[in-house]
């Protein structure tokens, strides 16, 4: 299974990791390709200024990313809606996104980060949590053509 994680919406990321974890539990080889805003899902909580241009740095400050800070695609209501959703998930003992990410790693799900998006956003390897491969579209398509389930999220 391959999943393109394009979005950094919390709800979409949860759906992506739900499928990744289930697929791994079903014995499937799972590759997650993080691109564009999706890079925010695997970004560390604090990202260094590094060699980023002023615009890249400002974009990073506005779109701070990291699994902990993501918000819902709907009903965010300046964070209130996301907070309510997170507390409801806790009440129903549903794992938080960070736990789903850890679980995916434990189950051998591979993370691939898109180098073009990294360049555009001024992100470097040290700005991410664990990543297995830094690559481009050909790598994704190589994996996708060998896989029966390919989704863009």
């Amino acid at each position: 299974m391959t999943l393109i994680v394009f979005s950094d919406d919390l709800d979409r990321a949860l759906a992506a990791f739900n499928l990744a974890n289930t697929g791994a539990s079903m014995g499937m080889k799972v590759n997650m390709f993080f691109t564009f805003w999706g890079l925010g899902v695997i970004k560390k909580e604090s990202v260094a200024r590094g060699d980023k241009s002023f615009m890249q740095w400002m974009m990073g400050l506005m779109k701070r990313g990291s699994a902990k800070r993501l918000t819902m695609s709907r009903m965010n209501m300046l964070g209130v809606g996301t907070g309510v959703m997170k507390s409801m998930m806790k009440k129903y003992r549903m794992p938080a996104l960070q736990e789903m990410i850890e679980l995916a790693r434990e189950q051998g799900v591979r993370f691939v980060a898109c180098t073009t998006s990294m360049a555009l956003m001024g992100l470097a390897e040290q700005d991410f949590i664990e990543v297995d491969e830094y690559a481009g579209a050909a790598t994704y398509l190589g994996l996708a053509t060998e896989s029966g389930v390919n989704l863009f999220i």
């Binding site: 289930t22 129903y92 003992r93």
Partner: peptide, 14 residues
């Protein structure tokens, strides 16, 4: 009991 998808399947596999 009390767990939702995907946890029962993940725990089964483990």
């Amino acid at each position: 009991v009390g767990l939702y998808c995907p946890m029962p399947i993940v725990k089964t596999a483990q």
